[in-house]
Design a binder for these strands. Sequence first.
DNA 1: GAAATGATGTGACTCGGTAACGTCGACGTT
DNA 2: AACGTCGACGTTACCGAGTCACATCATTTC
Lengths: 203, 203
Amino acid sequence: MTLLSHIVYAVGVARWEPNTKERLVQAALDLFAEQGYDATTVNEIAERVGVTKMTFFRHFPDKREVLFAAGQEVHSQILADAIAAAPDLATPLQAVAAALDALSATFTDDRREFAARLRVVVAGQRELRERAASKHNGLVEATAEALAKRGVPDLTATLAAELGLRAFDRAFAHWADPASSQPLTDLTRQSFDELRAASAALA
Amino acid sequence: MTLLSHIVYAVGVARWEPNTKERLVQAALDLFAEQGYDATTVNEIAERVGVTKMTFFRHFPDKREVLFAAGQEVHSQILADAIAAAPDLATPLQAVAAALDALSATFTDDRREFAARLRVVVAGQRELRERAASKHNGLVEATAEALAKRGVPDLTATLAAELGLRAFDRAFAHWADPASSQPLTDLTRQSFDELRAASAALA
DNA sequence: GAAATGATGTGACTCGGTAACGTCGACGTT
DNA sequence: AACGTCGACGTTACCGAGTCACATCATTTC
């Protein structure tokens, strides 16, 4: 980076504003909350950011992905890594508990408002709910795969992963609710314990 | 129906061929299998049936629904009814077992080839897989709701329903495979037993 | 300083999906 | 037998999502 470019950048005469992707996410969430998902066009989102439709689709494969692109792979990786890092003696459920801890810890309290708004928007739209469910399945699969690599039988791995992620989803819903103020890690542990108890009572 | 209309119908001078909806489903599945889901347009499907795009969308809310419209509500109802009809003494898992029996029994062997083709097409397309997962969730919810009406706690109901429908999905996959020739009811019972064992071993 | 790079814009296009309105045969009523 | 309703479909026109080929221009690299 040359001295000139530093100056130009600092003075704000850069050709485009930086952080386009994040600004698109913010604008999209705002507009979806204001007017609804269907009533908001990709053009509107792009224009609000001072950019065109094409640029939007260069950052996100489709309209709804603007709300999910951030999570999916990152969260999968966190879960898989935590499972792999669990002690050899850990049972499948213990490994899953560790993974849930790791994932929950990434949601610091400054993200709560964003999460809450996102939840409302997603809950109000079939297409977005489907995408959320798809993400859930993706995380279950990633977790189950990581368990399988530890030698856990497939069926067991899938059930343990599903149990864990259902616990996480429930905890996340509580966390995003302005009423409750506990950290997500605590909520997730509670929820996981409840689900394990219910599962044990099934048999 | 008058005598005249009988004659007209028999002679085939009716304004349009009957069974438009089913013929659309058949044409869609054929085309999807031939050229792929993305490569076939709604126009193609409609034209093959001798009808226009508009008519397609009068029968199905969107393109992918042509492969799912048949199932969803019907299957939900079958599951819910069977749960409701289970003896009062039945445990949640026993009620679910009865529901799976009822659902499996509706898939007679003459539907196997259709099911097999459908599975291949769905498996090859993200959009369709998502829709299938959404249907799965819908059936889980319907089953869990029916269990809750019997007084089963929500968490228990959801877990039992999820366990049951995972068993069904696995069994269905085997059933649709030309290699195995057992009736779906048997496969479902086997799969359900396996999953119950794995679930019990989790704790 | 020339060439490569990378982020963006432009314009045109396909296709999914919707809506207003028109057509015509089937059927019931009188 | 004439009439009016209704149901299933067609026609036309339109909007928005998503794609593509091509152009632009500041930054970076050699």
